[in-house]
């Protein structure tokens, strides 16, 4: 989504083609044809994630605009983080009232494997401006350890 796309012209072309098909379908594409910002059977992964790490924590950053924070569910199991939730459509809008529909909606779930074990009790998640930042403190055994070399 908010990935910078160096092939901007191709993206424009893709939109043009989509639009042609939209006209063909009399305004709005059938639901299953709509561009998959979101999941379901779609091939795209959602949400997109970035993984970061420092000495004490793993960080998972997920791009998920327009989600009710209450619908977000996070679980950590054996070093695998699962993010699930639902992105809702604008409500009470008739199909024929749409001029343009590029955003998609639906339920999603994504599993992210972390490269170490996590202290499950102190995981924090912060949802701000549509970006979810999850801080997962490393379990003591996953932290890097300095080994001192003794000389004789």
């Amino acid at each position: 989504m908010a990935t910078y796309n160096p092939f901007g012209d191709i993206e424009v072309l893709r939109r043009e083609i989509d639009r042609t098909f939209e006209d063909f379908w009399g305004g709005r594409q059938p639901r299953s044809w709509r561009v998959a910002f979101l999941p379901g059977q779609a091939s795209r992964r959602y949400p997109l994630v970035n993984l970061y790490e420092d000495k004490d924590n793993f960080f998972v950053e997920a791009l998920a605009p327009g989600i009710d924070p209450d619908s977000l569910e996070l679980t950590v199991d054996n070093g695998v983080l699962t993010i699930s939730g639902e992105k809702k459509e604008p409500q009470d809008v008739a199909e024929e009232a749409y001029h343009r529909s590029e955003r998609a909606a639906g339920k999603f779930a994504r599993r992210v494997e972390l490269s170490g074990t996590v202290d499950v009790d102190t995981v924090k998640a912060d949802y701000k401006n549509g970006v979810l930042m999850i801080t997962l403190p490393k379990a003591p055994e996953a932290k890097p350890r300095q080994i001192s070399v003794s000389t004789r």
Binding site: V93, H99, E102
Partner: peptide, 20 residues
């Protein structure tokens, strides 16, 4: 990406702009 639809008052434009 945007959704544009009409309601009784006029047009509604909804745009996903994460991180803003």
């Amino acid at each position: 990406p945007v959704d544009i639809f009409e309601d009784k008052e006029g047009l509604v434009v909804v745009a996903d702009m994460p991180g803003v």
